[in-house]
Amino acid sequence: MTTALFPRRRGGFSLVELMVSVVVGMLALLFATRLITNAEVNRNASLGGSDAMQNGMLALFSMQNDAAQAGWGLNDPLVAGCDTVFTDANGYTLAPAPRNGVDITPMSAVIIEDGGANPDRISFYTGSSPAAVGSVKNTQQYTGGSSIRTTSRPPYNFNPGDVLLVAPEPAGADRCALAQVASILPAPNDDTIDFSPGGAYRFNTAAGLGATFQPSQARIYNLGPGSRLAFHSWSVNNGILLLRATDLAGASQQPVSVIDNVVSIKAQYGFDTRVLPSYDPAPDKDGIQVGQWSSTMINADGDADTGGAGDFQRIAAVRLAVVARSKSAEKPDSHGRCSATTAQPQVFTSAAPAGVTAVPVTVNVAVAGDPIDWKCYRYRVFETIVSLRNAEWRP
């Protein structure tokens, strides 16, 4: 009897099983890769959003604090908007503002140098004396020199090192001037304020005040100690928020870096444009309120001057915006294109206060010299409105 022989099955995988295993493994690897990639993208987006939020909020808080403090001693109608002579041995310069097409250097709680779609330069001026009223007048004509004679009594509470602001009366008759008290001359000339130049008096020059004042037609304001005179100018360069300041060591002549990955700052004046028979901004009278937003000076009081002293006195508030970007750029797609951000952000889009027309501004967030496309970053916009606390309270 013949026995049938059957081939013995060898151990291992068949070719079909091997191919199926390879396909399943590749699918699992592809899924895991996508999972890891998506997790990394989400992590970068979250961290980038966190960085932008932290930097943006800190930048806005810093400028908001300056805006809230701005104006001590600068809200008097004789002072607000007055073209001012100012010299600082440490290098700080006043911000220019146009008046009828010509740049002046006015005194104001806030001055905006409009950059259009690019970042603005925003300056806030603050004295430190809560009683910086023009209680002292000159008695003799001043045309130059290192001293000015006041009323027939010693100027009360004027101390060496205090910053003086001399303003003509009536407003607009002459330029204003800033200087620093070097001494009050001894009797019988103790009605004379000396502002001779010296190492301790950075705001004094050998040329004197640099302006002229007629007898009994100038008021002298005390803005407090020079070390606490807070003239601050905020700007942005190459994605870094910068600050020039009179009261920060090393920051007077050249701005110092404050916060990185801030690509733009913008500001708008809030003008009171009401036409009233007898306009009085005192809080117990007409008060002061925003009726129009503008990035530049306007003819808010309806006189013959655009950017005149009356227009500065009509500034009721300032609107601020900060645009911050993520620290890390997201990777482009397979075609080399980024889509983290597809359009330039806009600021000041909402109507605030209610009924006041918004004036939106599109912000250019591209950083000069950055080889990475601006669309590869994520951006956050932060805004606030700050009322100028001294706008209504005027001598």
Rank of each mutant, 00 (worst) to 15 (best):
M19K: 07
R8M: 15
A39N: 14
P225Q: 04
A207P: 07
V16K: 11
L178I: 11
T341L: 10
N159E: 14
A340K: 09
N75K: 03
N390C: 04
T212P: 11
A95Q: 13
A109N: 15
T126N: 15
G369M: 00
S294Q: 08
A249K: 02
A211H: 09
V323L: 12
P77W: 09
A282K: 06
Q289C: 06
L320W: 04
F271N: 11
Y279R: 14
A179N: 01
V363W: 00
G302S: 10
R121N: 12
V24H: 00
Q54F: 15
R380K: 14
R10P: 03
C176R: 05
Q344S: 14
A70V: 01
H232W: 09
L35W: 14
V133M: 12
N75V: 14
A317M: 09
A187H: 08
G25V: 13
A207K: 07
L30S: 15
C82K: 09
F195S: 05
D373L: 05
P281V: 09
R9Q: 12
V166E: 01
Q268G: 00
N189L: 15
Q64K: 14
S257N: 15
D120R: 00
T2G: 11
R337Y: 01
A182K: 08
N44K: 15
S326R: 11
I315A: 04
I240D: 02
A177L: 01
G115H: 00
Y156G: 13
D311Y: 02
G355F: 06
R99C: 13
G71F: 01
S135V: 12
A207H: 06
N204V: 03
V236H: 10
G355I: 03
R219T: 12
G226V: 10
R378P: 05
A358G: 07
A343K: 09
V16A: 14
I104Q: 10
P255C: 05
